[in-house]
Design a protein around this nucleic acid. Sequence first.
DNA 1: TGTCCGAAAAGTGCATGCAATTTCATCTTA
DNA 2: TAAGATGAAATTGCATGCACTTTTCGGACA
Lengths: 211, 211
Amino acid sequence: MRAIADMIVTGQMLPGEKLDEVSLAARFEVSRTPVREALRELGAMGLVDREPNRSAVVTTVTETYLHSMFEAMAELEAICARLSAERMTVDERRTLELEHKASMRLVHAGAEEEYSVHNTEFHTRLYRGAHNDHILEMVTQTRARLAPFRRAQFRLPGRLAKSYEEHGRIVMAIMRADGIAAAQAAYSHVEMVSDASAVFATTGEPSARGT
Amino acid sequence: MRAIADMIVTGQMLPGEKLDEVSLAARFEVSRTPVREALRELGAMGLVDREPNRSAVVTTVTETYLHSMFEAMAELEAICARLSAERMTVDERRTLELEHKASMRLVHAGAEEEYSVHNTEFHTRLYRGAHNDHILEMVTQTRARLAPFRRAQFRLPGRLAKSYEEHGRIVMAIMRADGIAAAQAAYSHVEMVSDASAVFATTGEPSARGT
DNA sequence: TGTCCGAAAAGTGCATGCAATTTCATCTTA
DNA sequence: TAAGATGAAATTGCATGCACTTTTCGGACA
């Protein structure tokens, strides 16, 4: 299950590609049963589309739906940032700031991979800081579905430094418990990522990439 | 699958209750396989909790998690109201207002059931008016998970009129394209529903209700 | 009497087989 | 040549069986 999800999220499977049960079963050397169950789960998560008596296909994200996900992401991150500014404990605030400052090293070194890991942690800290488990779930799931479209964002020249600067704005707002400012900073940060990712979201029509 | 989901959403299955595959299979006169797959799906949707080699159980919603869902609901509805104020077409606005005014009749008649249907439609219109499919999905799913806790909200005396009045505030803000006001009105509306529902959310410890 | 241990019962995880549906290639016909 | 019909191959949906894990219940022992 995790393995199939990863194949989709990491982009090894392209949108529109068929996921037939026997091939997957052979691939992972299990029977069809666990594969079927995994596909059901992925269907419920929105990663694959399923229709009765039809093979599951990797969900084709239309341009407009992709846009709606990025917009939703921006709204959710804004909420998390606002609530974090209002609710984070002293410990959470301190850690957020420390980790942020520590990441400056990665920016100077141009360590894209490592910064990407740090970036994920940074955002996760924001989600947790909101102290709302349901929002945490929604934002996590949305993030997972956006992952394939955001993969190479830090390859764009100057993106690392820009990201760091935007994170800084969010951190500052949270430190002074300014929810409004934190929300605004987070919203525009995601907008930037959205724009940066749009460059890579030129996957064309899914049918053209089919098996 | 739908049948099992309904049993949970309509409250025939209480939180913490075990859903063992053989019983369910016998109940619906199918084999374990489709039951298993349905349970996986419900698990992904958050309606049941699953652990390896353990029976699925109806998700126990803790007090704090329930609160987090209502808070998330308020945030989501606020977003939808704001976006609706900004984006609804003339037609959508007109329909929203007309349907709202038509529902006054139900309030005066004290038609709880009918008003409940109207209420669902009203909110759905708001979700659609935001013109964002992903937010629509999230809010729909959250609403489904809250359904068991909101069932009897209109039984509280005076709740119908209050709901109508709050809807009116949202409609007015949307008609003048005032996103901020619409968001505020929607947020406090859901807060009211949350309070009203809290009365019914006294389901006690789940283990006490087990099979 | 209470606790610990072990065996039986119950339940889940997965493999396999068969029926039903879809898909695809080939042949027919206008 | 193109469109439609037809049958075989491929694929999904579901049932069943077996291995392994968890749970339960009875008895031994302190």
